[in-house]
């Protein structure tokens, strides 16, 4: 009886030490959770989540102050990724924040632009170029489609256009949608 107890205790002790050693030795240096969340967000900086950019929203999620379903540009995919990361149930997009839309691009109608620089100040990623009294233009590659420049424009000269697919960015369709494969689990 006694030997059994001693043996088991010893075994537990050794295994415990081993586990402790392993956890120190093989510790995975992960990004802080805020960084990880921020990486999953689409970085449109649009503020539709009611925070002043993606980073603040990431901080709020990490602190448990905001839900994961407040990012319309990221949509379904981002919610799923966040749910996976934080190990919580995914939920549908909060409609208060907006709806999921295809990727957009702001375009300034240069005929109507009066050069007021208000949109330049509003752009969260410095994607609008121009100077006072000179017409402005959007750097298409940098625009995140956040729509923050629409509101301040006094002459409504900014339009949001859907980002067109071109042969270089075109994606092959998902074959499981094209051919109804009823064989397996869907």
């Amino acid at each position: 009886m006694l030997t059994a107890i001693i043996a088991l205790t010893l075994l537990a002790l050794i295994l415990g030490l081993l586990l402790g050693f392993a956890s120190v030795k093989f510790k995975v240096e992960g990004d802080p959770i805020v960084e990880q969340i921020d990486k999953l967000l689409p970085q449109t900086q649009c503020g539709q989540c009611s925070f002043a950019g993606c980073r603040p929203y990431a901080e709020a999620i990490a602190a448990g102050e905001a839900d994961i379903n407040r990012c319309p540009p990221g949509g379904e995919a981002t919610i799923q990724a966040l749910a996976d990361l934080l190990d919580v149930e995914p939920k549908p997009l909060d409609e208060e924040c907006g709806v999921e839309k295809p990727k957009m691009l702001a375009v300034i109608d240069e005929q109507r632009c009066i050069g007021c620089t208000l949109c330049i100040q509003a752009c969260p990623v410095d994607a609008i170029l121009g100077a006072a009294k000179h017409m402005h233009t959007v750097i298409a590659d940098e625009c995140t489609g956040c729509e923050l420049c629409l509101e301040p424009c006094p002459v409504d000269c900014i339009d949001m256009l859907e980002v067109a697919q071109n042969p270089n960015t075109w994606r092959w369709p998902d074959p499981s949608h094209l051919q109804l494969e009823r064989g397996g689990r869907s």
């Binding site: 921020d38 967000l41 689409p42 970085q43 449109t44 900086q45 950019g53 993606c54 980073r55 969260p124 990623v125 410095d126 994607a127 940098e142 995140t144």
Partner: peptide
């Protein structure tokens, strides 16, 4: 890549 770029620009602006 695009979102990394946007983050960088946003943070620089910030």
């Amino acid at each position: 890549k695009k979102s990394d770029l946007a983050r960088e620009r946003f943070e620089t602006r910030q």
